[in-house]
């Protein structure tokens, strides 16, 4: 944590969105041009923990999987320091302690590549279209359904993708108050009664501000001040003033 507190308590934040611990690890392997099967564990563990710390500082809810991976990395690191244990099964001992992780990363990378290939296909209703009519039939009336956190995060990703990329922001700790943003947001939604998710971010120039707004929104949903609905998967997300139980 201390190494993040640089001059005058400012942070340098550069945070791509990762799909999980393997995605983060693979990113680090590629960035450093390591061989998946010969990863310098001590160094990658340090960089991995750096990222986790940034996520903690941002108060992001770090999925348990990230912490399990941190423990795995620490375990591998310690095993690499130990001399081989003669008492244990000989065959097991010959395995590089990093092998399990390397195979996992290699397998994940294969499917990540496969996903990228799929994305390059001419996708129906994105790149190629059918004769009219059918599309009209499929546009159903907006049926409001509750949505999961995942869909909300997916919506956040969309907003983040639209935001200027890879900018580095200098933010002092004093400005990092979700509380203030919560008050602003709840007032906005209470006044208007209904808002579209994307409209929350119209005035946010930086990724940091977007994340802050998003976290504030999550708090409001948790506190049951705001309710969110979506007509269909990936459709417009609408925010409503939550009706109080006794109203």
């Amino acid at each position: 944590m201390d190494e993040f507190l640089t001059d005058e308590s400012t942070y340098r934040v550069r945070l791509p969105i990762f799909e999980g611990p393997l995605d983060l690890l693979l990113y680090l392997v590629k960035k450093n041009e390591y061989d998946i099967f010969d990863i310098p564990i001590a160094e990658i563990t340090r960089q991995y923990m750096d990222h986790i710390e940034i996520m903690k500082v941002l108060n992001l809810d770090i999925a348990g999987e990230y912490l399990v991976m941190a423990a795995t990395l620490a375990h591998i690191k310690s095993r690499m320091l130990l001399p081989p244990d003669r008492a244990e099964d000989q065959e097991q001992e010959e395995l590089d302690p990093r092998m399990e992780l390397a195979l996992k990363l290699a397998e994940y990378e294969r499917f990540k590549d496969a996903a990228r290939q799929l994305d390059e296909f001419d996708i129906l209703l994105r790149d190629v279209f059918l004769r009219g009519g059918r599309m009209v039939l499929e546009t159903e009336d907006e049926k409001l359904t509750d949505l999961t956190l995942f869909e909300l995060v997916a919506a956040l990703q969309k907003v983040l993708l639209a935001a200027p990329k890879e900018t580095i922001h200098q933010i002092s700790i004093g400005e990092l108050t979700i509380q203030e943003r919560m008050v602003e947001l709840s007032q906005m939604i209470l006044e208007r009664g209904e808002m579209v998710f994307e409209d929350l971010f119209l005035e946010e120039p930086s990724r940091m501000a977007i994340v802050l707004t998003f976290l504030a929104l999550l708090e409001l949903i948790k506190d049951r001040v705001v309710r969110i609905y979506q007509a269909q998967p990936f459709g417009t997300i609408r925010l409503f003033r939550a009706v109080t139980e006794d109203a």
């Binding site: 799909e19 499917f111 279209f129 990936f234």
Partner: peptide, 22 residues
Amino acid sequence: MLEEKPKRLSRAALETLAIIAY
């Protein structure tokens, strides 16, 4: 021409779909 925005698949969805497909 179409007013509706195309439905996009997130990276997570594409990854999962690739695993299921193969």
